[in-house]
């Protein structure tokens, strides 16, 4: 705070405290450490970001919603059986197996076991197929989950960085805005000062009051001899008050040389001035408010 002179009755402590607190509030963020920014990002984002657009508890909510869940392993299948055409007649007792084989024609006389054998055989194959398919699907889903978890971790990192960067940007934006306002204020001040100086500066034309008649003389000369009125003429050098004139749009000859051979020889330095664009100011022309001399050409 700069030193300033005060009258006692000008002091309003409440107002001073308000100003001090406003300044502290504005200055905050300039020298935040990374740790402070992290804390701000997780606690009070709404200070810097639009709370309608970004949730301040985004990261915490993300962590809550996506806890890492381990994928359960698929329990193994029950033991499958192999059902062949002789399975229903099999026995670990040899005589019994012999009797069944002996009486098989009689059995087939009573009913046909072949469809039953066929269906059971098929069911066994279906069981194998189902299990293999399900295991394959489970593996695929498991792989998807693992990939998804890895992606979630990546998303979390991206979101975390995004929130941090947004916070930094918010702070930087505020700082830049303050700097811009400061620069704008300084610019306004400079402009006002410039205008004040311009107003104070006294205008002193190069042409002295005695030059007015000589300027009139010069115009008379131009009227008499246009070719000699070329700027930079030797006769002009000895007359400081004479307005120099330059012909606009003076065309060169078809060979590219000036029209008057006299001008080329007698005024070697004038050629460079004539080569300038018509709008280029001549350093020899005094900046007068009227400025009408050259227009007469």
């Amino acid at each position: 705070m700069a030193d300033f002179s005060l009258r006692s009755d000008q002091i309003d402590v409440e107002q001073i405290m308000k100003q001090i607190r406003t300044r502290i509030k504005e200055k905050r963020g300039v020298d935040y450490t990374d740790q402070e920014i992290r804390e701000l990002a997780s606690v009070k984002l709404e200070r810097f970001l639009d709370p309608r657009a970004v949730r301040s508890d985004l990261l915490a909510a993300y962590r809550r919603q996506r806890p890492p869940v381990p994928l359960p392993s698929l329990p193994g299948p029950p033991e499958n059986y192999a059902f062949e055409d002789v399975t229903i007649y099999e026995s670990h007792r040899g005589p019994l197996r012999w009797i069944r084989k002996l009486l098989n024609p009689l059995l087939k006389l009573l009913f046909n076991p072949n469809p039953l054998i066929h269906v059971l055989n098929l069911q066994s194959k279906i069981n194998d197929y189902t299990w293999q398919t399900m295991a394959a699907q489970f593996d695929r889903v498991g792989q998807r989950f693992v990939t998804r978890d890895e992606l979630d971790t990546l998303n979390y990192e991206v979101l975390n960085n995004l929130v941090l960067e947004l916070t930094k940007l918010g702070i930087e934006n505020r700082n830049l805005r303050m700097r811009l306002e400061s620069m704008g204020t300084r610019l306004d001040f400079d402009e006002r000062r410039q205008r004040a100086f311009e107003g104070l500066a006294q205008f002193k034309p190069v042409a002295a009051p005695s030059a007015v008649p000589s300027q009139a003389d010069g115009e008379d000369d131009d009227d008499g001899d246009g070719a000699e009125g070329a700027p930079g003429g030797a006769g002009d050098a000895g007359r400081p008050g004479k307005r120099r004139r330059r012909r606009r749009g003076r065309k060169r000859g078809p060979e590219g040389s000036p029209q008057g051979p006299q001008g080329q020889q007698a005024q070697p330095s004038a050629g460079s001035q004539q080569d300038r664009p018509a709008s280029a100011p001549s350093s020899d022309i005094p900046n007068t408010p009227s400025g009408g001399g050259s227009d007469q050409q």
Partner: peptide, 19 residues
């Protein structure tokens, strides 16, 4: 921050201090 700002305002500005 308020302590630093207020203390600075009081101790570094003689005119303000005297007022």
């Amino acid at each position: 921050p308020e302590f630093a700002a207020t203390l600075h305002a009081i101790e570094a500005n003689p005119s303000f201090n005297e007022a």
